[in-house]
Amino acid sequence: MFPRPIAQVSPIARFSYKLALPVVLVLWLLPFLGVAVTSLKPAADLAQGNYFGWPSHLAFGNYADVFRNSPIAHYILNSFKVTIPTVIGAVALSCMIGFALAVYNFRFNLLIFFIFVAGNFVPFQILMVPVRDLTLKLGLYNTITGLALFHISFQTGFCTLFMRNFIKSLPPELIEAARVEGVTEIQIFWHVVLPLMRPAIAALSVLVFTFIWNDYFWATVLTTGPNTQPVTAGLYTLNGQWVAAWQLVSAGSIVAAMPPVLMFFAMQRHFIAGLTLGAVK
């Protein structure tokens, strides 16, 4: 193990390490902690210049205000409406593509794979004008469907890279054995490979959920107004309205950040497995 395990060093070093951990953590999370504390401050505290101290009392009312006086609940609902279909769509499509690219040897296999991989790294901006135009022509501009359709397509690139490599690592004997039994290719996909892909599906679902929830660029390009905008874009609008009402901006930020954070802490293992795929050989 590197560095040398702390259990093997002097007691003083061990003690200072244990002391350093929380200190470094607090420094690291300072921007977050600042906002979290601010979100619980009564407006009067900020007016009196109490920006850093503890709140004079815990003003959970800020959160109630955010929900009562802004369409944030609506924005959050929109976020779910975009995110959940995208997760299902992108994961389903990429399961099938990943299966095809990993299991079969056919012409253009690698070429198709690399087109998906390359598309995944393209800067969004080059897609912006044509995708906006296409969405307008389909009559889907400023609809949740229009936004979700784009997300599904774009995320399919990333998910395919992931799924294909995952299926490639499964033992090929499984598929050969099924073929000898006379099982059709579709049944192989459904009954042999798909059950083994559960960890990959879980990992991808959490990752895609986070990516799409946090998307801001496409939300501003393809939607406008509280009926369709997801919470990232909504928060930007609200920030403009709540000038200098930092307790509200903070509470809104925390609310908007919550779903992926909860998702992350609940499914940490899968999340990290998905993110670090490829970081080890």
């Binding site: 095809a100 690219l101 198709i112 598309g119 296409l134 397509s153 399919t156 690139g157 996909f189």
Partner: peptide, 26 residues
């Protein structure tokens, strides 16, 4: 020979419409 193309088709269709063609259109 046919199965891989069947599995690829739906995803590839979406990807071509929303990613590949827009690059050239841009």
């Amino acid at each position: 020979a046919l199965a891989p193309w069947l599995f690829i088709a739906p995803g590839a269709f979406m990807f071509v419409i929303y990613v590949v063609i827009p690059i050239f259109r841009s």
